[in-house]
Amino acid sequence: MYRLPGFEYYRPLSLEEALVLLDKLEDAMVLAGGTDLVLDLKTGRYKPKSIVDTSGLKELKYIVDTGEALRIGALTTIQELVDSPIIASKTPLLWEAAREFAYWQIRNMATIGGNLCNASPAADTAPPLLVYEAVVKAVSTSGERYIPVTEFFLGPRRTALDKKELLVEVVVPYRNLERHGYAYRKIGRRRGHDISIVSVAVALRVDDGLITDTRIALNSVAPVPIRARSIEEFLLGKEPSIDLFREASKLVDRDISPISDVRAPAEYRLHVSRILVEELLLKSYKRAFKGGFE
């Protein structure tokens, strides 16, 4: 745990250069912050021949508000998200998740792009981005394409990104969620920093007394961070109530497939997912209607 194995090291100073490198190099991995990759190199999880260090790509550090969506450069650090008033006001779910993300020193290093590309089932930025239905922009020497976050994670540590592609931007549409209530909560083994046992992000919209849109996303309870589609469909068109939310929360069993590991037993993850979904639906509803059922 003291030292890293050797690798060929590249530090491109422009996006162009980075893409050429990714095109050319066999078996390269992208370093974008290092809080996951460096420790994975230490433990031997990955043994790439080459490392492409993106720390020179200042052009991928930005937060831009288009009026419809936020465009976030992939190398924006998590702490920059926390410090951004735009993030706090336009995408409060992402802001809350960023605030709960690890701790100061890690947040200064970890990037939003790195967090997504690491594709941990416990990725902290994933639940809010799944709720916002964010889209990531992937570019390579042969062009660019947009991948919805909902289709980005293929499995633990596996993404839809091609080896030669670089994730350069995360587009977070917020306009169509402006009338939603929202809530976020992460449960870990302690109050300080921890990998989540589960975290849940919820957004809920009610029009004329009926639920017109629900989005629920969870991490750490399936091979990839996921949306709870069964609950979302169940709630559509129904009249919100405490009982309804409780009933809906039970359907989370259909959407998640938690495992038992050193961090928590599967049954607990299932149980607490239900509790959180219920709690956060209620909180979202209250936020949407300032007061809720009281």
């Binding site: 302690r190 109050r191 050193v262």
Partner: peptide
Amino acid sequence: VVNTNFTDYVVPTAKD
């Protein structure tokens, strides 16, 4: 012992 690191052997932090 599976949890031989501080990721999975968790001890109290300032918040706890």
